[in-house]
Simulated assay, not measured.
Amino acid sequence: MNVAQRVAIVTGGGGGIGGALVARLAREGARVVVADLDVDTARAVSTTVNADHPGSTVSAGADASDTAQIQELIDLAERVFGPVDLYFANAGIAGAPGLDAGEQDWDLSIDVNLRAHIRAATLLVPRWLERGEGYFVSTASAAGLLTQIGSATYAVTKHAAVAFSEWLSVTYGDRGVHVSCLCPMGVNTRLLYSGKDSGDALGRAATQAVTSAGDVLEPVEVADAVLAAIEDERFLILPHEEVLDMYRQKGSDYDRWLSEMRRYQSSLLAQA
């Protein structure tokens, strides 16, 4: 899909990967609703992007996991720009480390990292089926293909986000609904370093696991990879190409992979 003149919504758009996606979309001629739980960051990104591409974005404070607020974002996009062509389910949280995560931690992670995607698709896919075209982009993680040392809530919900994206593509991909799933490793954002700052050994190990597994990319590099995948209408987006080799190794010998991951975790905890 060519994004020029298309209408997009980007959740978690107030910085990091989301902010970079907004800038990249606007540069390519798209019109974008910048949504973030923190309305000030969403407004700041919108103001900066509009300085270079006047009138290309509007901002809104929104909880991307709340159905009513997702609908408000869709309504805003339609009032200002027109029908939504692309939805970037990009908002996400790291979650609590280990089994210390309580019911509220699990509920929040499931809501933000998974149900937010489901709720957005539930609102948009029927419209796209009527129009014959639409594009859903899910920000998951390499943790959704592999796992995440330290955070069960993150590993589980990112696996589920990948699974939901797969299901969307299988179910609607021949009816004009395109789906891409972004699965990066380390990206230079606040989310990456939240485990390091958690005060928990598993949390520190979680950050170290990602930063030592491969290069830490800048958000703009990830945004470039996403736009290239959309142009090609490609499902799996791997800004870190080595993730594919890791995924193949996991699938080829699951028990060996689990054993190696346990050893890797032990080495990280010894350093934490």
Rank of each mutant, 00 (worst) to 15 (best):
A4Y: 06
R6A: 04
A8D: 02
V10P: 04
V10E: 00
G15V: 08
G19H: 09
A20T: 06
V22K: 01
L25R: 11
A26R: 03
E28D: 12
V34H: 04
A35Q: 00
D38W: 05
D40N: 14
R43E: 15
V45L: 01
T48Y: 00
V49L: 06
A51Y: 02
A51G: 15
G55L: 05
V58R: 14
S59Y: 10
G61C: 07
G61Q: 05
A62Q: 01
A64W: 02
D66I: 07
D66P: 09
T67E: 15
Q69F: 07
I74A: 04
D75K: 11
L76Y: 05
A77T: 11
E78N: 14
V84I: 06
V84F: 00
V84D: 02
I93G: 11
A101V: 05
A101W: 01
A101G: 12
G102H: 04
G102Y: 02
E103C: 07
D105Q: 02
W106P: 07
L108Y: 08
N113L: 09
H117E: 13
I118T: 12
I118C: 02
R119V: 05
R119T: 03
L124G: 03
V125D: 03
W128V: 02
L129N: 10
E130M: 07
R131M: 06
G132P: 00
F136E: 03
T139C: 01
T139I: 06
A142Q: 08
A143D: 02
L145I: 13
L146I: 13
L146Y: 00
L146A: 09
T147H: 15
Q148P: 00
I149E: 02
S151G: 11
A152F: 11
Y154I: 01
V156S: 04
A161H: 04
V170A: 15
V170G: 11
T171N: 14
Y172D: 08
R175D: 11
V179E: 09
S180Q: 04
P184I: 10
G186A: 12
T189L: 10
Y193Q: 06
G203R: 00
A205I: 10
A206D: 11
V210Y: 07
A213L: 10
D215E: 14
V216K: 04
V220A: 15
E221H: 07
E221D: 14
V222G: 04
A223E: 05
D224I: 03
A229N: 05
I230L: 15
D232M: 12
D232S: 14
E233S: 09
R234Q: 15
R234M: 05
R234H: 14
F235Y: 13
I237A: 01
P239I: 12
P239K: 08
E241V: 12
Y247K: 00
R248K: 13
S252Q: 13
D253I: 09
D255L: 14
W257P: 07
S259E: 12
R263C: 12
R263V: 14
Y264T: 12
Q265G: 11
Q265L: 14
S266W: 10
S267E: 15
L268M: 05
Q271A: 15
A272H: 05
A272Q: 06
